[in-house]
Simulated scan of single mutants.
Amino acid sequence: MEKKNNQAKKAVIIGASSGIGAALAIELSKKGYILGLTARRMGVMEKEIQPELVSPSYLSYMDVSDIESSISALHDLIKKMGGIDLMVINAGVSGSSSNMEREAAEQLIRINVLGFAAMLHEAYRIFQKQGHGHIAGISSIASLLPHPNGSAYNASKAFVSNYLDSMRLRIKRRGENVTITDVMPGYILTPMTEENKRMFWVASAEKAARQIARDIIKKKPISYVSRRWRLIAYLLSLMPRPLLYRIF
């Protein structure tokens, strides 16, 4: 462990039962962070994640689509931890819109958009009050482009990325000591993506977590995971929409 417990930073990871969230919990634990982990699958966190952690950790059930109970659970968790320095908002779902019913799209939006916004604002209020803090939100390279089979998902990630960017500008203008990091993964091998046969430049969740942890510690405003996706992001920013539509 890099620091003694009484000096360790404290991080909450929302959505820590699998994929990037679980891998990041293990990585931050190695770096000495005291952790608060939330997810709907408490059993998975208890049996599969917590035994891998080398620093103190606390678990809490959270379903971000239930906003009021999530806010209450967050404050209870922070109280048990004795404070918070970093919040990672990773909770989210994916879904193909090619055959997505309206109800499924609305549930995705409740989690990826409304749940995210609620957790972002609560973290900001906490850090604003205590005078310091760091918020990392997991968006996606998918936020940069439309997709015929991922309209709801891509739009939800565009919301996340734009909201983080706007919050960063607000904080800068107010001169507040709160850091915002937009984590933009490309293709990451997780339970949510393992059936996607069209992925390229695929990174493991563990590799992604190592880079995300480094970028958080460096307080980078944007973390492209892996870094080669920075080039794709730049090219997409230059590409005329008509040309982009031809690709799909």
Rank of each mutant, 00 (worst) to 15 (best):
N6T: 10
N6L: 11
Q7S: 12
A11V: 09
V12E: 06
I13P: 05
S17K: 03
I20K: 02
I20T: 06
A22D: 00
A22W: 00
E27D: 04
K31L: 12
G32C: 04
I34T: 12
I34G: 00
I34N: 00
T38S: 13
T38I: 02
R41V: 01
M42L: 15
G43M: 04
V44K: 09
V44W: 00
E46R: 14
Q50D: 00
Y61K: 11
D66L: 12
I67P: 01
I67C: 02
E68I: 04
E68V: 03
S70I: 02
I71S: 03
S72L: 12
G82S: 02
G83I: 04
I84Y: 01
G92A: 05
G92C: 03
G92W: 03
M100H: 08
E106Q: 11
L114V: 10
A117P: 03
L120M: 14
I126Y: 14
F127Y: 09
Q128K: 15
K129H: 14
Q130F: 03
G133F: 07
A136T: 01
G137C: 06
I138A: 06
S140Q: 08
P146F: 06
P146Y: 07
P146T: 15
P146D: 10
G150K: 03
Y153G: 07
S156E: 08
F159G: 04
F159L: 08
Y163R: 13
D165F: 09
S166H: 09
T181Q: 12
M192Y: 10
V202N: 10
E206F: 11
K207T: 12
Q211N: 10
I212R: 06
R214F: 10
D215T: 03
K220C: 08
R227P: 07
R227F: 15
R228K: 14
R228D: 14
Y234P: 00
P242A: 05
R246W: 15
F248L: 14
F248V: 10
